[in-house]
């Protein structure tokens, strides 16, 4: 028996907070309070786009203890697979959507003596909720936030006003201001934790720098926004369900499985949490592993696949689903 804990919400506000960034506010349709959550948590928003059911994860950015509404921010991506475009162009005030319970795959380490956040662009969103929580708890933190230009950057003004310029540092690409990672990381007290969220290149650069400065991996945390990459069309046999489905160019295996009415477990839909790990029974082609969850030897073995982001280059795959 599985319990359906999804929640029906109504769009209570939509704000254009920066170029290409909209903030959505959700209230529960039945008026009951939303669950409290922990900073860094995300929800999965289900959108009915014609025949297609899209499910996209978004970080919660509202105050974690505020049970009246949840807020998320959505960046309009140029090469959108449909989710961000749908949110930007089709979702209107008063519309109803279905959201999951909050899931936190990017929590802060509660033992930390100090917390340093580094955000690039829309990667700011989880930190807004985390800072709210740390501020209430009286914990030490600072934010270093890189934006392309002042119009594209969301929330930097509000955050500076709320927490002060001593804690909130803004770096604007267009003004040739960049995060001085080495200087920031060189003199932090032992027991400090670093959190990075933004484009993959930025995360790799910051974590690489921190490691070269002697930061142990236990003190480094990051969250990547991995969208399922497009690829060739292939067939997937779902052995236990006795079905064969086609996975489209802009569709993940998980999305194709759901479209066929088969239930598969998931949490992050971004290749990080491990929940959708599926056994591969046979594969005619090679698996393109895009996740950051499986161990290298598991990827080489070809026996496991994370169906939320990984796909097949070839004809078909047979899955234990």
């Amino acid at each position: 028996m599985s319990i359906n804990t999804e929640m029906n919400v109504r769009v209570a506000a939509i704000d254009q907070v920066a170029e290409k960034v909209k903030r959505f506010r959700f209230e529960r349709v039945d008026g009951s309070p939303l669950p409290v959550f922990s900073g860094g948590a995300h929800i999965v928003v289900a959108m009915r786009d014609g025949d297609i059911l899209r499910r996209n994860p978004y970080s919660l950015m509202s105050s974690p203890h505020d049970q009246t509404a949840y807020e998320i921010s959505v960046l309009r991506v140029e090469q959108s697979r449909g989710g961000s475009a749908f949110m930007h162009e089709h979702v209107k005030l008063g519309d109803q959507l279905t959201i999951s319970q909050p899931v936190n795959l990017f929590p802060h380490d509660v033992r930390g003596r100090k917390h340093i956040f580094m955000a690039g662009g829309i990667g700011i969103t989880p930190f807004i909720a985390m800072m709210d929580q740390l501020h209430r708890d009286g914990s030490q933190f600072e934010l270093h936030y890189a934006v392309r230009d002042r119009n594209h950057g969301a929330y930097w003004r509000e955050l500076s006003e709320r927490y002060g310029n001593h804690r909130i540092k803004i770096y604007v690409d267009a003004e040739k201001l960049f995060i001085p990672t080495e200087a920031i990381l060189s003199n932090q007290v032992l027991g400090t934790h670093l959190y990075v969220c933004g484009p993959s290149g930025m995360i790799d650069a910051v974590l690489g720098k921190a490691t070269s400065l002697g930061w142990p991996k236990q003190n480094l945390h990051s969250e990547r926004f991995l969208a399922p990459p497009p690829g060739h069309v292939f067939k997937a046999e779902l052995k236990r369900s006795n079905k064969t489905i086609t996975v489209g160019t802009h569709q993940s295996i998980l999305e194709a499985v759901e479209a066929a009415g088969v239930d598969a477990p998931y949490l992050c839909r971004g290749g990080a949490c491990g929940q959708c790990e599926t056994s591969v029974l046979a594969c005619d082609g090679t698996i393109e592993h895009h996740d950051i969850y499986l161990e290298p030897e598991d990827k080489i073995s070809g026996k496991k696949i994370m169906i939320c982001v990984s796909r097949v280059k070839g004809q078909a795959i047979s899955l234990d689903l």
Partner: peptide, 10 residues
């Protein structure tokens, strides 16, 4: 020593 130490100390 540890109270005064910086990240990067092993």
């Amino acid at each position: 020593n540890l109270i005064n130490a910086k990240m990067g100390t092993r």
